[in-house]
Design a protein around this nucleic acid. Structure first.
Lengths: 174, 174
DNA sequence: AATCATTAGTTGCAATTTGCAACTTTTTAT
DNA sequence: ATAAAAAGTTGCAAATTGCAACTAATGATT
């Protein structure tokens, strides 16, 4: 059977993963952020199979994350460039990299450091923050149905909230 | 041939993706953040095949993102709970969800809104920020070799920097 | 203690996906 | 004009995924 494209979950997370959750896709995006634009360069930097690269680049273009741009005026050959939508994935690329740095490189040391180009200051940890900049953890966050919530989503969120209540009570009793 | 476990790229991003980049893994983690702990509940909520769920939960436990905890004192049956390492992935789950909200739900409306549990305020956009809270974009960020950089990494970073210089010059000339 | 339902997996098989390498077709460079 | 590089495409073998049926424990009920 075909790989479920996570559809029925009424969650933007599944939608995102349908577009960028495939093998190689995020590494291709990382290369894009590094300035790589040409098929051959992606292929050599990543060592990805050419047919897979073709497929991924096509999906990324179709979904509006990359766009094909002529190499120069009127040329038929093209480059793959990040769109605004694609550049907005920077957060995710950096967050994943930082997480790997923190948890998988404890001993070996960090391979790459991100700094601000202006002043050379190290980029702080990307994390969920309140308006005032405090880092928020799981238990600081709750969920409400949004404007596009289905009946299913509403029910699920209610369930989750109740379960959470119950757990908090248990904890305070013990 | 086996799926390349992106090894030779000396980048924490590839390491992260090796652990959480597989199909279903991030959705399983989302369920964990929602409070799901039992095999059967993951299975029903996600509709994932049981063998795949088994495989993913095992990988997640082996890599220290989840841990198996007895359901109660001395019970042999267990639950899957996020570790600190796992909870630190909240950033990524929320960032991916928000990205989907922004770019894939323009019309339909957002299914779920994240708020602060304390005060009900909406959670701001997760993004790369400077210390003072400014959102940083791709061009505000540069990379330096870190303490664990291989010779290859150093060379690559040098290349990238040079390429960037060149591009900036071209832009200023035109 | 015996029976039954639930939970948590396992197994086998069919359908997809991936990787590799060789081949084609345009462009670009000399 | 010729050669080399760029950008894919194609065919086939190997690996992964999904499904459904099966098994083995636990927990609940009588």
């Amino acid at each position: 059977m075909s790989r479920n494209k996570f559809n029925d979950l009424n969650c933007s997370l599944s939608d995102s993963l349908n577009l960028i959750g495939e093998w190689w896709t995020i590494l291709i995006l990382r290369e894009s952020f590094f300035g790589t634009r040409r098929f051959e360069d992606f292929q050599q930097q990543l060592g990805i199979a050419r047919n897979i690269l073709t497929a991924r680049l096509s999906t990324l273009c179709e979904s509006g994350i990359l766009e094909r741009v002529p190499v120069k005026q009127g040329a038929k050959r093209h480059e793959y460039q990040l769109t605004t939508m694609g550049r907005d994935l920077l957060t995710i690329v950096i967050a994943l990299t930082q997480w790997g740095d923190r948890w998988l490189r404890k001993d070996q040391g960090v391979p790459v450091t991100f700094i601000e180009r202006n002043n050379g200051e190290e980029i702080p940890k990307v994390c969920v923050r309140a308006k005032d900049g405090r880092e928020l953890k799981t238990r600081d966050i709750a969920m409400l149905p949004g404007s596009g919530a289905s009946e299913d989503t509403r029910n699920r969120l209610k369930q989750i909230a109740e379960k959470w209540e119950k757990r908090m009570q248990q904890e305070s009793n013990s």
